[in-house]
Design a protein around this nucleic acid. Structure first.
Lengths: 125, 125
DNA sequence: GTTCCATATCACTATTCGCTGATATAATAT
DNA sequence: ATATTATATCAGCGAATAGTGATATGGAAC
């Protein structure tokens, strides 16, 4: 982005922080992982099984979620058990669902960024 | 992403829709625009003035937000007045702020995607 | 010790997204 | 009609990111 003006000191504005928080939730893989964890703590291979993502991919995203403070982890023998870090995350996800009830079709309409991989229907000229 | 398993029919899972909703909020420019609109309806050039973004950039993002159903618009003479489409958006943004109070430092830590443009300090090998 | 299982790390690549600049459209005023 | 202001559209570029595969690390069992 260009710049949000002012705040040349704190280097990171509140707006940027919030945007980055949303970015943590804006990936289908990460969101699937968080959804799985909403029902309770899980070890990595359990998450892999429930999301159909590859193991390195899950680990990569878990690292991201962990760094962001959205999940916490604890070693349990050979396993590492992850869980949601705060109930506020659940609140946020619930709010998102409520909002989605209102704007669902719109979301699919938006062509600015893609949701699936279908461009224009072939032959729809 | 790879695939979330099942749901081969609806083509678009709920998880994907939610991820896309968050994506709408995950850009600092779009978030700045929404923040400006939280205080009341504004016409485009007012948004431009408050965000220090260029006019085409603002229009592009407004189109995205509009398609997503996050804002609505009404022509007013030569102007087009935009406003937040639902109070639920404000709820969501508030929840995000509350969550950020808890995970703020973490968010800045996460290196998976960047917030500002400082990589590694040059010469920190 | 060695082997096996669980998880993490990392470089690489393809794809995607945001910004810009030029330009088109729309509405009003002169 | 022409000029002027307000907004929208679009192509192209540069940068950032998600997924993969190979591999490293950690811990338990034998």
């Amino acid at each position: 982005m260009e710049q949000i003006a002012a705040d040349r000191n704190s280097a990171v504005t509140d707006t940027e922080r919030r945007a980055k928080l949303f970015r943590g939730l804006a990936d289908p893989s990460r969101l699937a992982i968080l959804d799985a964890l909403r029902e309770g703590p899980l070890v990595v291979h359990e998450i892999v099984g429930r999301t159909a993502l590859t193991q390195p991919n899950v680990s990569n995203h878990l690292r991201c979620l962990f760094d962001c403070g959205l999940v916490i982890s604890r070693r349990d023998g050979r396993f590492v058990r992850y869980q949601i870090s705060s109930p506020k995350i659940d609140d946020l996800l619930r709010d998102a669902e409520a909002l989605l009830d209102v704007v669902a079709e719109g979301i699919e309409t938006c062509r600015n960024y893609r949701l699936d991989e279908d461009d224009v229907a072939p032959g729809a000229a």
